[in-house]
Amino acid sequence: MWYFLMSDAFTFGAFLISYGTIRFSVNHWADPNQVFNAFPFAGHANLPLAFVSLMTFILIFSSVTMVLAVHEGHKMNRKGVEKYMILTIIGGLAFLGCQAWEWTHMITGDHTVLVDGVLQTMGTTVTNNPWGVAADPGAITAALQKTPDANLAAIVHSLGHGGTADAHATLGRDQMISTIQAANLHVTTPGPIAFGGYFFGITGFHGFHVFSGVVINVIMYLKTKFGHFDQRGHYEMIEKAGLYWHFVDLVWVFVFLCFYLV
């Protein structure tokens, strides 16, 4: 198990170092405090780091319940192992749920970006990165006049006044432009495309590890439940599943560092 984990550590390490190289090679990289500032049900509130801290604590705590499961396994206490395995599985699922929300929020995000002299709304995907440098105010004013109605409606919609984008389109061009100007939007130019690829690639690969960890934990829970380990006389397998689970937590510590903190 340890040697498998070591090879996996090299895979993640290579990904993260590649990310670091590209990040160092461009003049402007996305500011994590700007990118990850949302929280479920908090609307447009600016809460940098809050949600990802929650995810981090969920994972650390599920690591603790996993150690406790291993600990109960040493004492041959089947009920204890079952209880802590369930808690660990719940922790893993909670983390995956958080990640699903975060990805959805980023992909469907509608940030106003200045592209080719017109404004458009953009989410963060593997081909789009709205997190570039702030656009020149003069260029924004000029771009507003050239921006098609559909884009203007989408930008007005992104201000969060409610209603659908189609409904905003009926406002009329001048009114949409004045609404957008009044909103004093922070308009950016597109950032390096690599950001989305690295973010979704690495957190996705980590999320896949979490998912497979949950599957392994469910299998271990069922084997415990059916008394396989009691028959065998030891809970060695729980310990191995635990190693994998802690490794997933360990990788998150570094992903958290590279993508969210610095």
Partner: peptide
């Protein structure tokens, strides 16, 4: 990894 990190980050910086 100690060397990987130093070498690749320096490489990125030099590329920039």
């Amino acid at each position: 990894f100690i060397w990987f990190i130093i070498a690749f980050l320096a490489d990125g910086e030099s590329w920039k």
